[in-house]
């Protein structure tokens, strides 16, 4: 069973109130001064950490740009290779139709034999 009653609690709180509110900075002072969040300020070490962090971020950005450019160059060369590719049958386009149908037809031979490289033999 507790021996401290409400009245005693009130007296304790009253005492605490008196002690704490004995000196309070004025309202004018506290409502005018600009707020400073936290009373911590970075030391020299913290500045180095910040500078290091910024440097790392810059390096990462440069690396990213470099990688992107390399990627683009690879794509560009691949695209160039595709656009310069020509099918083997293009040779037919450079031959006049007269050369193609000029000679007499022979059994077992084709007019293309003279134009295209020999393929597999059976």
């Amino acid at each position: 069973m507790s021996g401290t009653n409400d009245e005693e609690l009130r007296q304790h709180f009253g005492a605490l109130r008196e002690v704490e509110l004995a000196r309070v900075r004025s309202f004018a002072e506290l409502s005018r001064r600009p707020a400073t969040l936290g009373r911590t300020r970075p030391t020299r070490g913290a500045r180095w950490v910040l500078a290091g962090g910024l440097g790392a971020m810059a390096a990462a950005a440069l690396l990213h740009v470099h990688m992107q450019r390399r990627h683009e160059a690879t794509w560009r060369s691949a695209a160039a290779a595709i656009s310069s590719w020509t099918p083997p049958s293009d040779a037919l386009l450079e031959v006049s139709d007269r050369a193609l149908v000029g000679g007499p037809a022979t059994l077992g031979a084709s007019v293309l034999d003279a134009l295209m490289p020999p393929s597999r033999e059976y």
Partner: peptide, 19 residues
Amino acid sequence: LRRRRWLRRLLLDRHAHRV
């Protein structure tokens, strides 16, 4: 303020001193 202090402590604890 408590939350901001906690965050700040988390980030800069070793390099900050309290005035």
